[in-house]
Nucleic acid binder design. Sequence first.
DNA 1: CTGAAAGCGCTAACAG
DNA 2: CTGTTAGCGCTTTCAG
Lengths: 334, 334
Amino acid sequence: MVSLKDVAEHAGVSPSTVSRVLSEKPVVNENTRIRVMDAVRFLDYKPNELAKSLKLGRSNTIALMVPSIQNMIFPAITRGVEDTAKKAGYTVILCNTDEDVEEEKRYITRLRTRFIDGFIVASMLPGSDHIRKLWREGFPVVLTCRIYDDSIDAVGIDNETAAFEATQYLIRGGHKKIAFALGREEIPLYRDRFAGYRRALDSAGLPYDEELVIRETIGTGSFYFLTQNLIKRGTRPDAILASSDPKAFVVMRALHDAGLSIPDDVSVMGIDNVETSSQIEPPLSTVAQPLYEIGALAASKLIRQIQHKEKTGKLAPAQVDILKTDLIIRKSTR
Amino acid sequence: MVSLKDVAEHAGVSPSTVSRVLSEKPVVNENTRIRVMDAVRFLDYKPNELAKSLKLGRSNTIALMVPSIQNMIFPAITRGVEDTAKKAGYTVILCNTDEDVEEEKRYITRLRTRFIDGFIVASMLPGSDHIRKLWREGFPVVLTCRIYDDSIDAVGIDNETAAFEATQYLIRGGHKKIAFALGREEIPLYRDRFAGYRRALDSAGLPYDEELVIRETIGTGSFYFLTQNLIKRGTRPDAILASSDPKAFVVMRALHDAGLSIPDDVSVMGIDNVETSSQIEPPLSTVAQPLYEIGALAASKLIRQIQHKEKTGKLAPAQVDILKTDLIIRKSTR
DNA sequence: CTGAAAGCGCTAACAG
DNA sequence: CTGTTAGCGCTTTCAG
């Protein structure tokens, strides 16, 4: 490996001078600058980022923590993060946490020993204190898919409203018995969507029927069976709103296998708009989250925060950005 | 940040001693060992990995380069990589290259300045020399989804055979006019799959009909229109084998929108078995790649190679692993 | 404008 | 068994 010192020798100057021209310090004589640059090119010198990091206490690296990259909403978010990080000269480390708080903590402590510059945390569980602590210590963090309150930087959507709009759309389409496929209730995201569903029912004067909510409970079995049970129970809904697109896929499969047609017998709607949603048959009506933009914005917020901290020594006040969703009507609803 | 020196002072020993107990060197007195460990715990000392990396010339970090994490085969592969890397104490950096060789090179040079320990390169383009060069320089690399020859470590599947088996299955099912939806031909993967298709036709004594191959050419339009054209041309196929699952989705959509029923009017088959394949309607028959295992094996090969290099100073002989595929029959074929 | 020197936090000879 | 020393490759005072 060719080092700064080699360049210095080759150019007949001191290492410090080379360092100066490479960090574009304005104080260096044009002639020596040229001589140094020639040597740099001649030796094809690449500065050692690790040494720089050690000296400077930052690594130009950020971590993206997701429950699982296999969860269909995360590839797009991840791509948004990576693209904007790359543009700003940052590298991203991918961490799958499986929603395991201990795993998350382990990652955080491990990465901090490498001078990681910041974290984008995209898990969905209710806030645990280790993230708050991180923030309080002055560490750049941006939350996504999980917003505690307005005390930590975050970007997300208004889940309550998203579900409200979906339900409202269904109601306007003449649906009267709208079921709801509710994901694990300890996840705030799903609770919010559930609340939106109920509010829409309310404000349309439709009764809320506990019978019509399919609850994913561990042990009770999957949505597939729950959906088929619901139908067999005789109280057949005329529409089902799923609390996420992947859940809608399962619901659709159950309906189909039970011999029901979508949307003729029952409309199905999701929330998320993952890539697959437009590819299934029938294409799923849904409320789109701007996934790529969420990732991109999270990354640029984080980087801004990192740079702010470098300048001023502390974090800028937290700010949460709520991106707008988009009602997308395809063919799974009538 | 608490450093090794702090621990040393606190324990009343020299930094080297602390270093020794922490790297579990056997030569240290039990008593001082305990004293040091107490200090470590008391100060909650975490070694600075960056400093270690700088000193040792390795970072316990590997890079995973994929065309795009949004390409549906990569989330599972990525998860396989990350899981096994994590278990071995490695961190993974995710790089989206968009199949752009220059981008790939830029990543490589940039990451090398951080003492990256190895690369998993999962792009699909024919081999460019920068990867070969990397390998020749003694840098651990494992290729995946792209096998040049047997001179570089790699893991993948036998694409020719995969397509052969799919075609053969279709033929056995009584299909006589089997179309093929062929991805960009500069990608060897697709060429191989195409070859397998042709060989199966051949060995069954079925004629190869150029009319029946839908070629994705830039500018000619998407598979959607190509498929509909094929149908309108009058030579309606009784089956279509797509060179990848995502392409099969488009084909299915085109067929559906043209009023044809799958599999009654035409069978559709894919190759890959991405997650969505089982979720669409009808569920797609396909040849499964063991995606997670590909990622996991790639990572463990890479790590083994890294460790081999640390021991011996050079790479172990290249070895390419061909994982077996799995014919999965669902409902898109009759 | 440039060089010498110190040091980021760690490990590894080399002595003792 | 343990301490001293040097140094990984870089940046940054501090002098000059």
